[in-house]
Design a protein around this nucleic acid. Structure first.
Lengths: 176, 176
DNA sequence: GTCTATACCACGATAGAC
DNA sequence: GTCTATCGTGGTATAGAC
């Protein structure tokens, strides 16, 4: 995973991949059908974990759209700050998936996006939010969190919680 | 460029690269020393153009931090919506640069970031903005715009101007 | 500056012994 | 499940004619 992240899918050979786990390249093929399988499994894991974290956050929060949005952004940011390498692979290496696999991944992603969209739309209806366009707002809020995976490091100036809290506030302000 | 974007640096061969412009792979080497040179030139062009657009936007706007921020975000978004492929290469393929070349690119990027930071800090001092952390706010605002390159398409639901305007407002709200 | 031809190497993947 | 050995392909890059 570190390899895919640092050098890109095509930049990491099956030989390097294997030697990172202490085996030969041919041994990899006892576990996966092809190199692309490995990327697909990694990317699927990342997207499904992300999706589940969002869903749990939504369920655990009350009915208030503001509280729901806070919970979603929190989970989104925590995921990206906690597993930055996985997040980067998920966001940069989709091009290397077969169309069928890419589509499966995109379905999960769209489902996650829909959670954000539903909260924003309901918030607009109930008067909690006032964004002129729900989708544009969601794209902006999601983007903030995605990018956290590119710069966050443990032991840096902010804890995961601090970033999650700040970004939740950013999202709510953005939706005012 | 399209190739680097769609398949990643290592996913695009010099043969394919050359045939995209109607020549043979060997002819490419009459213009660049190595494949990496091409990526470096592309990425440098993208970062310097971006930096200049930001600088011009800043100069053209008045002394009000709010107006300056609006201008910066506008330019940032316009660049990413106008040259999405270049932007994606600039943001995803830095790993393939030699350390020396990557550092040169990062210097331009840090300079651009500093423009945002200076405006936010001055806005906080003068009471226009009220963010608890200037850097976190800048990271969030920049991220929103960066991501535009991933989804924007001409002929879609929004014009470049509409996205730029919306995102400028998002940024200002975020800084309230 | 482009071409053909090619050097040299690394790639993903497989075969078959253990 | 891992190994060694190897297949066939395609990678970056160069040489030298035009």
């Amino acid at each position: 995973m570190i390899g895919f992240c640092e050098r890109g899918y095509h930049g990491l050979s099956t030989r390097d991949l294997a030697s990172a786990t202490g085996v030969r390249a041919s041994s990899v093929y006892a576990h996966v059908d092809a190199k692309e399988d490995l990327l697909y499994q990694l990317v699927t894991m990342g997207h499904e974990e992300h999706n589940e974290l969002l869903r749990k956050a939504l369920i655990a929060s009350g009915p208030d759209p503001r509280e729901q949005m806070r919970a979603l952004v929190r989970a989104h940011v925590v995921m990206h700050a906690t597993y930055p390498l996985l997040a980067r692979v998920c966001n940069k290496e989709l091009h290397a998936l077969t169309p069928a696999n890419a589509e499966r991944v995109m379905r999960v992603r769209l489902d996650s996006e829909q959670m954000f969209l539903d909260v924003v739309k309901r918030g607009i209806e109930t008067g909690s939010f006032h964004s002129p366009d729900a989708w544009l707002a969601v794209a902006a809020i999601a983007a903030m969190g995605l990018r956290v995976a590119e710069w966050f490091e443990p032991g840096g100036p902010w804890s995961v919680d601090e970033v999650a809290d700040s970004y939740s506030e950013f999202a709510l302000k953005l939706l005012l």
